[in-house]
Simulated scan of single mutants.
Amino acid sequence: MLDILKGPVEATQDFMILTGQAMRNLFRRPHYLDDVLIQMDSIGFGSLFVAVLTGFFSGAVMGLQMGRALGQYGQTSRTGEVVAIILVRELGPALTALMIAGRNSSGIASELGSMRVTEQIDAMRALGTDPIQKLVTPRMIATAVMLPCLTVIADFVGMIGGWVVAILVYHLPTRQYWTSCWQALEWSDVVQGLLKPFIFSFVVSLIGCYYGLRTTGGTQGVGRATTQAMVTASVLIFILTTFITKIFVATT
């Protein structure tokens, strides 16, 4: 039994150490601002199309399903309200984080894994450069900044998707739809919708860095690290969504 738990416990310990070192580097020089900006462009702008596409069709599907369900009770006019609440609270942050994890957690693991197996990271250490400060912290900062921004964009585009369905399928007035969206949202919803992607950003970035830095076994090892990073980040996003939602439900 202890042998079975040994691997997961060691992995958790190593991940927490990496997280602590990356956080500590926020207050240490050098800060490698150029690397942060490059990663913000890669993670943020590079993922914009994926976030917009995911948000639009998520909103459209919810508009179709919610409008049909509400129509049974004569409440089709509240379609915008339901779409807005579900997007901002739950689906927007979760789906955006999952798509960014699929694109960036795996990408980070692949990039750092390739550097690891080609001994570039060892060369950095030999030259006196901290690879965590140079490679991990900029990616963590960039993801923490860009993922909430992408979530906001995905939420808004998702509401547009719901609006398209509302006017084309259920023939709701545009003013009525957007008014119900606006009135449905409270500050607690906005806080929850921004806090989740901020927390998810550390999972997306640090999981990718963790598996990338511990890659072994050449090109096959890079492939394994990429898959493990994506799967682990996705599972943790679902777990964190459950706990954060539970906390907000209990406190509001």
Rank of each mutant, 00 (worst) to 15 (best):
S42N: 14
F248M: 04
T245H: 14
E10N: 13
T174C: 06
M115C: 04
M99R: 02
V83K: 03
A94N: 07
T179G: 05
V169Y: 07
S188A: 11
L135F: 02
I153A: 09
L240R: 05
L168Q: 09
G113W: 00
F248N: 02
S234Y: 10
A94E: 07
V82Q: 05
E10M: 13
A22L: 09
F45W: 14
R175T: 07
A229M: 05
M40K: 06
A69Q: 12
L64C: 03
T215V: 12
D130H: 08
T179M: 09
D41Q: 15
V145E: 00
G223M: 08
G158V: 08
F57N: 03
T252H: 14
D155E: 09
G80I: 07
A229P: 02
T245P: 08
A250H: 10
A184S: 10
T79P: 00
L147S: 05
I247C: 10
A109N: 00
V88M: 14
I43K: 05
Q228T: 04
T54K: 01
A154Y: 01
A22Q: 08
Q21V: 09
I85T: 14
M124C: 06
A126L: 11
V249D: 14
Y170Q: 05
V204S: 08
M159I: 15
V222D: 06
T252M: 15
D130V: 05
R139I: 01
A84H: 00
S106G: 15
D130G: 04
G46M: 08
D35R: 11
V9H: 00
Q75L: 15
I85Y: 14
G193L: 03
T174N: 05
I85S: 13
M1G: 13
D189Y: 03
Y32M: 10
